[in-house]
Structure formats: C-alpha cells, structure tokens
Design a protein around this nucleic acid. Structure first.
Lengths: 211, 211
DNA sequence: AGCCGCCTCTCCCATCTGGGGGATGGCGGC
DNA sequence: GCCGCCATCCCCCAGATGGGAGAGGCGGCT
C-alpha cells in the first residue's frame, strides 16, 4: 500500500453520451491508480483535449458527432505517434475493428464489457500493451482474409444502401449506368452477395457502411 | 432542507451495458430524492426485479438480451398496469418510440440526453407524468400518419432485409412466389419505396427492423 | 348476417438487375 | 519501362423485380 506516490494513469474520455462518460468516469476515478483528466462529447473536442492534456490513455467512442473515432485515431496519431488510444464502442463489425487497430489504436472494447475488463484494458493500454478480447481479435483476423472495396466502390455501395437504382447512382456520380453496374457487380463479388440487398446486409454487418 | 423524511423515488435500471448502468446509478444516487434499488442486465432479469422490488420507476434500455425493452414494457404492464416505465435508448426510429409509448411507457429518452434532463424525466415519470422531449414526441406523431405493416408483411420485410429473393422468401414462409411478391409490393407501397433495397433503408431508419 | 382487413394465389408486362465476357486509358510502384 | 490496379466504358442475355388488377377464403367486428 506504500506507493500511492506513483503517478496515476491520466485518462481522457470521449463519448457523446453523458451517461456513458459518467459511468466510465466514476469507475476510473474509484481506482487508486488512475484518474480522468478531461471529457469530450465529440471528436473535435477530443483532439483539442488530447493536445492540451497529453493524457496517458484516451478512451474513444467510435460514433461521435463532428469527427468519428477512427478519424480521431488518425489525427491524434499524426500529432503523437505514441499516443495510447482505446476504442470503446457498441459496434462489433470487423471493418470497424480492423480499421481502428490497423491505424494504430492500442485496444478495442465493446460497451457491454464487464467493469473489471474495462479497467484491465485501460491499464494494459497505458503500458503500451495492446488489449483486445479474443472475440474482437478473431474478427480483425477474419477481416484480413476478405477483399477490400475501393474508394469508388464504397461511394457506390453507400448509394446502393440508400436504395438507389443503377441509373440513379450513375447520375449522382456522373458516370455511365454501365460503369455503375460494373462497380455494383464487383461489390457483389467482393462481398459474396447475390443481390444488392444482400450486399447491403453484409456491408452493414461488417461495418462497411453506416446507416 | 427539512424533509429528507420524504420517501425517495425507488429506481430500477435495466441496461446490458455495465458502464451505462454505473453512470445512471451514480447520477441517481447522488440525488437526495432518489435511489437505485436494483440493476438488471437483460429483459428477463428486469421483469424479475420489478416484481420483487416494485420500484417507483424502471429505466429500460430498448435493446437487451433475452427480452427487449418493448417486451418488458408489455409484460410489466400486464403485471401492474400502473407501472411507471421510462425508456432510455440510442434508437430514435419513430416505430420504436411509437410502440413503446402506445404500449404504455411513460417516457422515452435518448442516451445522448444531458444529465439534468434525465433526472427531470425520472422525477416526472415517478409522479405519473409523461415525459417526452419535443423531438421524440414529434416522431411519435409522424408515425401515426403512416400506414402500419401487417404481421406477415413484417415477416417478409425481415427476409427482404437479409437480402433474400422472392423465391427464397416464398420457400421459407411456405407460400407461393407470387404471394411473396404481393407482400413485397404492398410493403413497397406502404413504405413509399421504389425498390426493395430502398424499402430496407426506410424500414431501418424507422426502426421497423433490427439488423 | 354483412362488412372489412388480411393472407393467399393468379396473370400480364415493362424494366431492372446480375452474370458473362472484353476493352480502354491513367496512375503509381517496382 | 513494365506491370498491376483502378475507373471507365461497351456488349449480350436470362432471370428477378416492380406495377397493375383481380379474386377466393377466413376471421373478427358490428
């Protein structure tokens, strides 16, 4: 019990739900070895607070107003490549997980994770050790075996998901209907779907698109 | 400051995210006029705890394991038609809102609601006064103007959302492909969509289907 | 009993969609 | 430079989809 002299782990929380921030803050501040130094309600705020406080760990929600969690990961790591970022979200699509981890987030947690595990994750990340549950890690690995969509295909996919016809998609992207069809066909192949509606279902499950 | 003698508002929290429960519990227990008497992590537990504790207010998440929030609303109100239930969720589709309120929930909150408003809502509901933000109320009203889907149409819609073909849907529901098409057509009409994929997009936005 | 909504099935037909090819120019990496 | 990936465009064609209209049976509500 001697060394409370040790520096506490300084944590920033970024989540657009006040309730979640409160819950996390309460949990963290109850621990003798960590403390919350700031809270952000959106992505821009998170970046600003990161620069101001240079915390040991920042816990990030994926879906936030203004700038989403992935964008925050990218920006913060540009500023400080050693930043320790822990994603905490409800979304378990393999694309989200893969993107965050491959862009340098140190951990990825789901919001239904038990208290103790959340705290363990924060401690692990603060020591620069990656933290990922086996389920989440498995998804990231799954994702690696799957073909990626190109930028253009993602543009098309988004419109497909809105229920647009090929003709409509072509008009909006200023390309031929034939070209739109080509993109759609390649999306179907990559997502291993038979119809556009199935493609949307698959894409949604994987976290390729946000509705 | 005299009367702390007044009975506190007894609250049960039901949410499958430990973090959210913690956050709410912390908020509620800090108030002099309310206290958390139990917490549930899924729908079944929520019903059991309701019967055991008969709280003044139960705060319910919509999407929970085993039994979702709407089902809990229905069961609890069968047990005690005067139960005071407050929905607290991230889903703002008009169907969810409409269903919960029309089944007798006293309030509907979104998780990004500020602390103070959450507490006001709990107080309002505890006094049997309905609580609904104007945005949420507006959606419930919007929904009333829209045609409802029949049971069968919802069955079909779910399969459509999974990307099934008419033929496949027919097989799974043991009906003719023609009948499946008829249902799909009527879904398209009711949802004001041109294609099945658009229908899925609309249905998802409205909260008619869960992916 | 009579009416109405729902589920079921049927037929027709224009259009969209998806699968199979193939071809071009551009752009970046090796 | 050459290669590979990407975006763009093109062809053909079978099958799925969506729009329109009708009709019988069944259960609930009046």
């Amino acid at each position: 019990m001697a060394a409370v002299l040790q520096k506490k782990i300084r944590v920033i929380l970024a989540d657009d739900h006040p309730v979640v921030r409160d819950g996390l803050a309460a949990m963290v501040n109850q621990q003798p070895d960590m403390e919350v130094v700031a809270e952000a309600g959106d992505g821009e705020e998170a970046i600003g607070l990161y620069e101001r406080h240079k915390p040991d760990v920042m816990v990030l929600d994926l879906r936030m107003p203004k700038l989403d969690g992935l964008a925050v990961v990218q920006r913060v790591l540009e500023i400080n490549p050693k930043a320790r970022l822990l994603i905490m979200t409800t979304y378990d699509g393999d694309e989200d997980i893969f993107q965050c981890l491959s862009h340098g987030a140190k951990g990825y947690l789901l919001k239904d994770t038990p208290r103790q595990e959340i705290l363990s994750a924060i401690r692990a990340v603060s020591e620069d050790r990656p933290y990922t549950s086996s389920t989440v890690a498995a998804k990231a690995l799954q994702r690696m075996a799957k073909p990626s969509l190109t930028e253009r295909e993602l543009d098309v996919l988004e419109l497909v998901a809105q229920g647009r016809s090929n003709k409509d998609i072509a008009r909006r992207l200023s390309i031929t209907e034939g070209t739109a069809k080509t993109h759609v066909k390649s999306i179907l192949t990559k997502l291993d779907a038979i119809s556009r509606t199935e493609a949307v279902a698959v894409a949604h499950k994987r976290g390729l698109i946000r509705l």
